[in-house]
């Protein structure tokens, strides 16, 4: 493919990336913070989509990984004096371990078991963090604060978060289009058939869960580094609910969808929640409508529109 064709194909993506790179030059501090939140939750939503959209199993406790990543990083930085980058391997190992344990316990059965157990486990972890017994380590409801700076300036943090999102996006894209990704989709479409062909369904689901868990954990520890504090809410139901909203509204089964969903949900949280007390009710209605009539999410409207335009030109 010549450079020209390549540029044409990814024109809108390139324009978007350039806008995002230039954004800190003319935006306020507040917008930068909101944008960083979107980048980090975008990664979190992509990780969720690998599980929900591509593998077809719903976790209702995905915040377990996000919270684990955040707390592992925070605790090691504060109590053991590790640098942020040195905590990353531990985040990866602990999230992979949690994913393996949950998966081995529940994925052998109907996937609804996995959904319910992750929901319960998420609440369990939340109680554990806010319990009096662990207060001296986790700071209870107050969380942990004053994490050391990873980079010197806000702008550098912004670019780190952007790079994190882009890296996660491309890695996820590689995984999805690899034989592994194709197998996951095959299992999602027809578990029985995949089994008959000879795929070990349990193993593939475990791999998906571990990959998704690691990615969510990394998003959590980047979130901790960016806010320089962690809260038990990272582990709580509200974080899980946020990521489900982002993925479903944006569009599961695509990688852009969850990121767009993250942007939508976070912007609404920041700007709408102060005007409408009942914005969540509207979100609930939209959520139900999307599930019923637009299973590919809001991004599928964009895709449909674009397909109409381009197919006219190509034919």
């Amino acid at each position: 493919m010549s450079i020209n064709r390549y540029l044409q194909k990814y024109r809108s993506a390139l324009i978007l990336i350039i806008i995002l790179i230039l954004l800190p030059l003319f935006s306020s501090e507040y917008i930068k913070v909101v944008a960083m939140q979107i980048f980090i939750f975008g990664v979190f939503a992509i990780s969720y989509d690998i599980l929900l959209g591509y593998t077809g199993i719903a976790s209702f406790g995905h915040a377990i990984f996000f919270g684990t990543g955040a707390y592992v990083s925070a605790l090691m930085m504060l109590k053991a004096g590790f640098s942020f980058w040195a905590t990353i391997p531990f985040v990866v190992v602990s999230c992979a371990g949690i994913g393996l344990v949950i998966g081995l316990l529940t994925l052998r059965f109907a996937t609804i078991y996995f959904t319910i157990v992750t929901l319960a486990l998420g609440q369990f972890c939340y109680f554990l963090l806010t319990n009096a017994l662990t207060y001296q380590y986790t700071g209870g409801d107050d969380g942990l604060h004053g994490l050391p700076m990873v980079l010197q300036t806000k702008n550098q943090m912004y670019y780190l978060a952007l790079a994190f999102l882009l890296a996660a996006f491309f890695i996820a894209k590689k995984i999805i289009s690899s034989p592994l990704g194709k197998t996951l989709v095959a299992i999602r479409e027809n578990e029985f058939r995949a089994k008959m062909i000879g795929y070990n369904v349990l193993n593939y689901r475990l791999i998906a869960l571990v990959i998704s868990g690691i990615m969510a954990g990394l998003a959590g520890s980047f979130n901790a580094a960016m806010l320089r504090s962690v809260f038990p809410g990272f582990m709580g139901a509200s974080t899980t609910i946020d990521v489900i909203l982002m993925t479903i509204l944006g569009g599961m089964g695509s990688l852009l969808g969850p990121v767009a969903g993250a942007a939508l949900v976070i912007i609404c949280q920041q700007y709408l929640s102060s005007y409408f007390e009942w914005w969540l009710l509207i979100f609930g209605v939209i959520f139900v409508l999307v599930v019923l009539f637009l299973p590919q999410g809001l991004i599928s409207i964009v895709y449909r529109f674009r397909k109409k335009n381009t197919s006219g030109g190509l034919n």
């Binding site: 929900l52 009942w278 009710l281 019923l292």
Partner: peptide
């Protein structure tokens, strides 16, 4: 609502009832 989804992927029934939580909970608050 449920009737539209019978026979399809059970994932959507799950997500539908999950979405109802928002509506019902927020309506109580209202």
């Amino acid at each position: 609502l449920f009737r539209r989804l019978y026979g399809g992927n059970p994932l959507f029934e799950l997500l539908l009832t999950f979405g109802l939580i928002y509506i019902l909970d927020e309506a109580v608050k209202l």
